[in-house]
Design a protein around this nucleic acid. Structure first.
Lengths: 204, 204
DNA sequence: TAATTTGCCATACAAATGTATGGTATAACT
DNA sequence: AGTTATACCATACATTTGTATGGCAAATTA
């Protein structure tokens, strides 16, 4: 089902994913050609046909920018890098690091927020369950007691945030778990954002 | 800042929001013209210029589908909450809204659905908690396994729905609880609708 | 060796697209 | 009365866009 991609096809797919992750319009063939330095749209055309044939994208014929990604869950697999947050870029958490959170590149979010799909049951103690969508805003300063998403030792965690004088404490909803105490400057710890909401679809 | 919109401008803006909410591509001028029955793209062109002038959209010149909504914060669409679901109490759906909440547009809310706020912990076994907003669609036929909101003996319950030959079974998520078996024609039981999603705000 | 796949180019074309310009009609305000 | 804003239409035009077709070189596979 998931047929192999060539290097070029992979690069183009990555570009499509990036556009979607950055909440931009899907590119036109010309956009893609320009981005990769192709002199020609026909080249792109052929790569897109290959991607469509291998079922990584859907093309709506004749429709400008009619490229749809079919591979929500394949999004993360080949994205390199552990927990790197570049400005303007989506957070990418390599799924091999931990099976807790994936970054779906769901479009149409408020500009400064993004979504994480919760995978696994590690967040049950925060009343957040497998498959839930958490809405994360990376641009607001967390206040004590708010739920934050963060990367701790390359694992994504969603916990309640408390700042003390010299440390940051991450509490579980569930009192059984001991709070995690980290140095805010530590390499172990990286704050991703404040969880402003969760959404769960109940049908399909 | 937020200048007044005319009726037509409002209708067009609503259409743009709808497209965005439904996660579709921004429309072309021709799309919009078609949708509203205009014979002409120039008409749309002028309405868009008006919307841009009043700062409701940003247009990227010459760019196909280059319509951006500037009202990202209105992106959370305000929907009325029509009632509360609480154990032991009859479900009351007030004629007027008791409250309203801003739903993220990721939370797909079909037009005919309504919102209920969950009160109390009676629905914990369905992973739904005090304060959560459930999105209920009264106009779809529940399929087996879907979560439904219903009124049973004047108490509102949210449970998994199963229809057998002669009865309706309401299962808890939690296997500890015995299924409730009711006669579909019984006065005890009234189906309210299918829970299509839940939303929980985590801040404020 | 022959056949196929991959990656790119060039050219061509119909349709779509954004935009400019000018026109008509109605209503509201000055 | 004149002006302005609104709402539509028609026409025109340069680009953009998706697509089809054919060609070529290199790598891979049969």
């Amino acid at each position: 089902m998931a047929k192999e991609l060539t290097k070029t096809q992979r690069r183009i797919l990555d570009y499509l994913v990036e556009r979607k992750a950055l909440n931009q319009l899907p590119p036109t063939l010309a956009d893609i050609a320009r981005h990769f330095g192709y002199k020609n749209r026909a080249t792109v055309q052929q790569h897109l046909q290959a991607l469509a044939k291998k079922n990584y994208i859907n093309k709506s014929p004749k429709l400008s920018r009619g490229i749809e990604l079919t591979i929500e869950d394949k999004f993360f697999i080949t994205r390199p890098i552990l927990g790197e947050v570049a400005a303007g870029n989506p957070l990418t958490i390599y799924p091999g690091a931990i099976d807790s959170i994936e970054l779906p590149t769901v479009a149409r979010m408020p500009k400064d927020s993004f979504l994480l799909r919760v995978k696994g049951d590690s967040l049950i103690d925060a009343n957040i369950f497998n498959g839930d969508i958490v809405i994360v805003n990376p641009n607001i300063e967390p206040r004590n007691g708010q739920v934050v998403a963060s990367v701790l030792d390359d694992a994504a965690v969603v916990k309640k945030f408390f700042r003390t004088n010299e440390a940051i404490e991450l509490h579980s909803e569930n009192k059984q778990y001991e709070p995690i105490i980290v140095n805010p400057n530590s390499d172990r710890f990286k704050l991703v954002g404040v969880v402003v909401g969760i959404y769960r679809s109940m049908v399909q």
